[in-house]
Design a protein around this nucleic acid. Structure first.
Length: 266
DNA sequence: TTAAGTGTTGCTCT
DNA sequence: AAGAGCAACACTTA
């Protein structure tokens, strides 16, 4: 679930609630989520460290420290929760940052896909993983987008989800974007040109902006989404929010795609 | 009851 | 050498 909009909400939580707070101690509840750093080293690295800022790149979150950053990836159903002094720790908390004022930041990850680590800088981390441009980065403009499409013969669904091509979309939001742009997931990326490329580019931005504005990933955020969003109907037996046609499913890059066979003609 | 499905990434294999 | 396939995980549904 945590794709670009969800991670952006976590980013804003840290920016708004955690900046300038100091980590009294880091409690590692599950060593299995540590990526490339031993538990004692991470604890030592975070102890007494003030949180300077926060940043997001694609689906990755960076909690910026005095030097370097704590990196977080949320896998399929991870989240970030601020727990007040007297609050109780959420289930499946894998890492907890205890601030010196008693509040705590909980990295929750039931399925334990994804994890946390330390990096020197966002740029270094992005280069190391070979991530493509963040989709909301202004530098990734229509021209860059159409160039990427033209260079690929794969189906558009696989291209939108490929983090090395562009970073931020997963299975759910790539379905949403294609639905909004009325493009069939099977369409060869290289065949999307001109007006339909513009439509796809716009849908990508509008869908992500709208999801962020509705508080993606947060409690009951689905209820706040516009009526024409596919997401709430994106399940077996779901219907198109526009024309009520039964949604179709197919496999792309090994993942299940949901689409409207009527609104998204092949 | 067992088996498949879900979601993302990284590895292996072709 | 791009891209398919699977393993990793925990939990739910058929």
């Amino acid at each position: 679930m945590p794709e670009l909009p969800d991670v952006e909400i976590f980013n804003r939580l840290v920016l708004g609630q955690c900046c300038a707070r100091t980590i009294a101690q880091a409690v590692i509840r599950d060593h299995g989520i540590l990526q490339g750093i031993p538990a004692d080293a991470l604890q030592a690295r975070l102890k007494g460290e003030p949180i300077r800022s926060s940043a997001r790149y694609g689906k990755h979150l960076f909690i910026l420290l005095r030097a370097g950053a704590l990196t977080m990836h949320f896998g399929t159903n991870g989240s970030l929760r601020l727990v007040l002094r007297d609050g109780s720790e959420p289930p499946y908390t894998r890492l907890r940052l205890d601030f010196d004022d008693g509040d705590r930041l909980a990295y929750v990850n039931p399925r334990r896909l994804g994890g946390v680590g330390i990096c020197d800088s966002v740029e270094q981390f992005v280069a190391q993983l070979g991530l493509g441009p963040d989709i909301l980065d202004a530098a990734f403009d229509l021209k860059a987008f159409t160039a990427v499409l033209a260079a690929s013969k794969r189906d558009i669904k696989a291209v939108l989800m490929d983090q090395r091509v562009m970073a931020g979309l997963g299975n759910i939001y790539s379905d949403e974007v294609l639905f909004q742009a009325r493009i069939h997931p099977d369409t060869a990326a290289g065949n999307i040109r001109g007006e339909s490329a513009v439509r796809l580019f716009s849908a990508m931005h509008e869908t992500l902006d709208t999801a962020i504005r509705c508080g993606a990933g947060a409690e009951r955020s689905v209820e706040r989404l516009p009526k024409d969003f596919l997401l709430p109907q994106r399940h077996r037996g779901g219907h198109c929010p526009r024309c009520s046609t039964a949604l179709a499913t197919a496999k792309h890059a090994g993942r299940t795609s949901y689409y409207c066979p009527r609104c998204q003609p092949n």
